[in-house]
Design a protein around this nucleic acid. Structure first.
Lengths: 145, 145
DNA sequence: CACATTCGTATCAAAAAAGGTTACGCAATG
DNA sequence: CATTGCGTAACCTTTTTTGATACGAATGTG
């Protein structure tokens, strides 16, 4: 699996942290430590799902499409294209292999099962939760000093 | 994510299908369509977990370490090194990023959660199940002809 | 005891996937 | 009408994963 989901959550949490204010992909990119184009590519997918909206030109940038409390992490994952949690091997089995393709078919079921388990868990978390959690951590760190 | 888990299940199902008979890594490799060394690398990990045993020399090869009904897919995943289902992005956030590292920390919790969800699901399936499922599919295909 | 077989493993090469960069068009703002 | 910021394609680089070759050690076999 790749780390796009993580990046997306990071971006969206940033947007959640600055409500009613458009943020440019350039700002987001420098916050996260990557390139604006990388950000835009991902936000494009999230926009299709209605999670964000964008505007070009001066004063343009990105906004959340809904309240942070109404955006679940499962939606983010789905918007990005729902990559499988477990990946099938792509080798062609030997034609004489006694279990051959059927193991693959059986595995498909298992993977489907596992995938829905993940989504179930992610559905429990909203962007609001993430923001609160992050703020909580920040506060705790501040106290320590 | 990589496809090693899939390959491992394939291998082990093959072993389950031919009980009391040592199978060489060369045979396994050609069944699956890869190189014997690739197979051995994985079986080495599975052996550490007690899921298989090996023997060199003539008449050597691999055997399951337990009954297929006593090997859960979750154990296989764990034996291979328990790769995370979701991966953290490795970019260094900008020092001024308001949520910065804390999003990462929050995400860690989520990922831990998601990971245990997967293992819970995989714990429900045994090699015996996989074998039966594969056989069932084979039988169904045979009927159709 | 020489020999064949099969694992064990290191090292290298190849392929695939992911991520980053540049470039340029377009729309909207001011 | 110049500037800003998105939209996207094309391309390059890096990282990850997988496969190949080689050779040593161990264990049966005749």
């Amino acid at each position: 699996m790749n780390s796009r989901f993580s990046t997306a959550v990071h971006i969206l949490t940033l947007l959640a942290a600055t409500p009613d204010e458009r943020v440019t992909s350039e700002f987001l990119a420098s916050s996260i430590g990557t390139n604006p184009v990388v950000i835009r590519r991902q936000l494009a997918l999230l926009r299709e799902a209605g999670l964000v909206e964008s505007k070009g030109a001066k004063g343009g940038g990105w906004l959340l499409g809904r309240k942070p409390s109404a955006i679940r992490l499962s939606e983010i994952r789905e918007a990005l294209g729902e990559e499988a949690a477990l990946r099938m091997h792509r080798n062609d089995p030997h034609p004489d292999c006694p279990v051959g393709d059927n193991v693959r078919a059986a595995l498909e079921q298992v993977y489907c099962d596992a995938n829905s388990a993940i989504n179930q868990r992610l559905r429990r978390w909203t962007l609001q939760n993430m923001l609160e959690e992050a703020n909580h951590l920040t506060a705790t760190q501040a106290k320590k000093r």
